[in-house]
Design a protein around this nucleic acid. Structure first.
Lengths: 117, 117
DNA sequence: TTCTGCTATTCAGTGTTGCTATCTACCGGT
DNA sequence: ACCGGTAGATAGCAACACTGAATAGCAGAA
């Protein structure tokens, strides 16, 4: 994965994971798998587990231990009210940023085209 | 500024500044001002200067000292070929991320609406 | 002159975050 | 008994944005 991607994920990965949990509860290993399905192919497992610990400590998710047929018990994470509020805020922040950047992008594309004419 | 915004800026602010420089060369103080105009109202000056040092050391910009009528000489930054390439990559990375997140967002909005019906 | 205010840059220290690498642990099949 | 897949935890590292303060030059007011 590019270094740019890594840095850009900072601050967004948390929201992405919460968004995934908003679709349906999941445990760490599963979340990693879903991330890969979503196209985030190279997110390290360690990263996800560390992130889950963080959002649990902040009280954004509820946790339940569920025995697994295969391997050790799973920690299933469910987004709660506080997490929902945080996610709402996340979308707001994201939209703000995305709009400004999109504007900049378009302004430059325009400039580049004008130069070419 | 919200903590979410701060974290989200990581990895994007660099691209944003390069994008601003792609529109036209500028010096630090001016860049801060432009950022505020663009809507990034609370970015600290110290942050911008530190970032400029970084991109200069990576050779993404050319620097020229220009005397100022007011205050100390200005360091005018111009984006160069390498910086242009980096910026191209930035747009790619950004588009990738923005698409995935937008997808997730829409999936959740949809789900929420279905629930309400 | 001295002080204040604006322009302009620099720097040390801090906190958050994602990555790497490694470790533990449980289970089924060979 | 061993290995591969499932599942989770952790220590150390690097990158980045923020805070707060210091430095520096010049103009006009007190």
């Amino acid at each position: 994965m590019g270094k740019q991607t890594t840095e850009m994920l900072k601050g967004t990965l948390e929201g992405i994971v919460l968004a995934i949990l908003a679709v349906s509860p999941a445990y760490g290993y599963e979340i990693t798998a879903r991330l890969r399905e979503e196209g985030f192919s190279d997110i390290a497992e360690g990263t996800v587990y560390a992130l889950l610990v963080r959002i649990e400590q902040r009280g954004l998710v509820d946790v339940e231990k569920v025995p697994s047929e295969k391997g050790p018990p799973r920690k299933v994470y469910t987004i709660n009210a506080q997490g929902g509020a945080y996610l709402e805020e996340f979308w707001g922040t994201w939209s703000f940023l995305a709009e400004r950047i999109e504007q900049l992008h378009q302004r430059i594309e325009q400039r580049t085209n004008e130069e070419g004419e």
